[in-house]
Amino acid sequence: MRDFAQVLQTATQDFEFNREMRYYTGNLHVAIGDKAWLAAYDDGKFLSVEPSGTDPQGAAIWIKGTEEQWKDMTAEYPRPFFQSLQSSSAKHGVLLSNTHQLYAYLPALNRLMQIFRQLNREGA
């Protein structure tokens, strides 16, 4: 499975992702199987991303899935109903934080998933 830090580094160059992350201050935690990453933002500005334990550590926005679930979610054409984070959560058991911030920054997370798929497609 891809290094999520690479996905996030690519996203920092993306107009739409940066726009949708505007004003976010806090952490974003992503767990893929037994690997995890913790990213920090301040007023929408990306500060850092580091390997982390799989516990979200109080991050307001977190996504947790098995490696298999992430493979399904980031396939070029995901099978039903892996087409989005939320349908993957409702129908396939992917875990998401239930916070205002997750809902508020859903447009950014959608874009992040698009970038993840794009990197897979390009084999980058």
Binding site: L85, Q86, Y103, A104, N110
Partner: peptide, 15 residues
């Protein structure tokens, strides 16, 4: 706390 932009984004689950 959540703008209408997110309602549009949430529709990805259906598409």
């Amino acid at each position: 706390n959540v703008s209408r932009t997110s309602t549009g984004a949430a529709m990805m689950l259906n598409i």
